[in-house]
Design a protein around this nucleic acid. Structure first.
Lengths: 108, 108
DNA sequence: TTTTGTTATTGCAATATTACGATAAAGATT
DNA sequence: AATCTTTATCGTAATATTGCAATAACAAAA
């Protein structure tokens, strides 16, 4: 019955899926787009930009942070978030591997 | 309430999230890995390789097909699946854009 | 035509995600 | 200290995903 048999797959397959899952919501795509554009990346700014409540944004930020796509540093009262491009580079590598793979896969 | 306010976001944000969602499960990562390795890409082969039932694999294949990451062609009785590398190239472009973006984002 | 083989679909139970009000936590301000 | 500001967490309702048995659909084989 139901939901996620992650123990059946390899660690790297689970990890990769976990990273993609972090990107699998438009709000988190929007957060990333915003962090890419602005210099000041205070959490409150993101809440204002998105049509979502503060707790919901905070939850999305946590999911992005948990897979390492963003970092947050405490600045007194506030928290400054920004992208960690290393994590994005790691994910890009997955597509490199697929696209560089020479096979006859285009059989259909 | 709950679950998905996709109407609040742009079409491209929703589309991108939808593609990432297709990759957000280890079984689908495993299917892609298998299609990359083998020449013969008959559906039944995938079912044998994965620790999941035939209906479950069929459902995962449909999700991959719906976002264009794989294609399926009918071969008499069977269906031959393979990767569509164009779709992967499109997704890779997202990471290109982020990584090429010159900003002071590393503020944390 | 009946049977067999292969894949898709349906229906449903278990689990996960999403969203937010309420509230907690903690630094800043008065 | 009391209050304000900012962010995180808890609790919970609504919705989505996952997995599979049962079954349908359909071509191939007998």
């Amino acid at each position: 019955m139901g939901a996620s048999k992650s123990s059946y797959f390899t660690a790297s397959q689970n990890e990769l899926a976990r990273c993609f899952k972090a990107l699998a919501h438009p709000a988190r795509i929007a957060i990333i787009a915003h962090l890419l554009e602005v210099e000041a990346c205070v959490c409150g700014d993101i809440v204002e930009k998105l049509p979502l409540s503060q707790p919901t944004v905070s939850q999305h930020l946590r999911e992005l942070k948990e897979v390492g796509l963003i970092k947050g540093s405490i600045e007194g009262n506030r928290i400054c978030y920004c992208l960690d491009k290393t994590a994005f580079a790691n994910m890009q590598h997955y597509f490199d591997l697929i696209l560089q793979h020479k096979n006859a896969s285009e059989c259909c």
